[in-house]
């Protein structure tokens, strides 16, 4: 069995009190729970405070470009489906810079688990608005307050075709651990939004703010295979915020649709590939 320390590395530079700490903890605990060997774990991310999580997890980590971490995961899973492929992104990263990739990767239903660290503000660039900032939220780039309505990540994931959609709150370590483990176990594209306070730049959406609002969907009768129900619940945003699994269905995952992915690409024998047949068509 693996232990937390098997996944621990690096000198962490997040602000004290940052929600990312509990997310990192939960991620490692989920890996322990599922006994995923670090060498079989491909952990990709983009750029931003949250994306540093792949540097600070002992595994095969790939911290790529802003908004593009999910594409690294797509390529990795298709080329070696034996790996557990996990990806982390921030709200600016996934919903600003790389939002098109979320749409197109979700609809493929590739067996990748994606966590969205949603702190509703840009941290690493020192406090500008993000695509999920609430209307009226004052930042250094929006001195009169954010003008647009925030993007709803869960709805986007649902309409794009994710087959597992959940939300957690960074203040509830046990719940995130459980949901992440569920997400990894789910065969297909798992989308997990984590509401994460930014103690330095987000004065509005604090720990207390979310504690007051969050309630667990699974504590009441709720059918997460019902898309319309999920759609309704995802619109619940305000005084009460549901967390838990919103949607979960079974559907063949993308990599299984390619017979060439059965064996990891690097294991194919590529010495002396015969191409005589190919030339025949051009004679």
């Amino acid at each position: 069995m693996t232990e937390i320390k098997d996944y621990t590395q690096g000198k962490i530079t997040w602000c004290a009190g940052c929600g990312d700490f509990s997310i990192l903890n939960a991620v490692k605990r989920a890996f322990v729970e599922l006994n995923i060997q670090p060498e079989n774990l491909a952990f990709t991310s983009g750029i931003g405070c949250s994306s540093k999580i792949s540097y600070w997890t002992k595994a095969y980590g790939f911290s790529g470009l802003h908004g593009r971490g999910l594409q690294l995961a797509l390529g990795a899973k298709l080329a070696n489906r034996n790996l557990t492929v996990f990806s982390a992104a921030g709200d600016g990263d996934l919903l600003g810079e790389g939002v098109n990739h979320l749409i197109h990767t979700a609809r493929k239903n590739i067996d990748v688990t994606l966590i969205l660290h949603n702190n509703q503000v840009y941290g690493l660039t020192t406090g500008q608005k993000s695509p999920t900032s609430e209307k009226g939220f004052i930042t250094i780039s929006t001195p009169k307050g954010v003008v647009e309505d925030p993007l709803n990540p869960l709805l986007l994931a649902l309409t794009s075709g994710s087959t597992f959609i959940a939300r957690c709150f960074a203040g509830d370590l046990n719940h995130i651990t459980k949901i992440i483990a569920e997400g990894i176990k789910h065969k297909g594209f798992s989308f997990i939004e984590i509401l994460q306070p930014c103690v330095t730049y987000n004065y509005l959406n604090t720990y207390d703010y979310w504690k007051e609002r969050c309630y667990d969907l699974q504590q009441n009768k709720y059918d997460f295979t019902n898309k319309e129900e999920a759609f309704k619940k995802m619109h619940e945003y305000g005084k009460k915020m549901p967390v838990g699994i919103f949607y979960k269905i079974n559907k063949p995952s993308y990599e299984e649709l390619f017979k060439q992915t059965k064996i990891p690409s690097y294991k194919h024998n590529i010495d002396n590939i015969n191409i005589d047949k190919l030339f025949e068509e051009f004679r």
């Binding site: 470009l65 593009r68 690294l72 390529g75 899973k77 080329a79 070696n80 690409s265 690097y266």
Partner: peptide, 14 residues
């Protein structure tokens, strides 16, 4: 997406 996906695959040895 094309080049980043290809890099993900290359990373794993394809």
């Amino acid at each position: 997406s094309v080049i980043n996906t290809a890099l993900g695959a290359s990373w794993t040895g394809a």
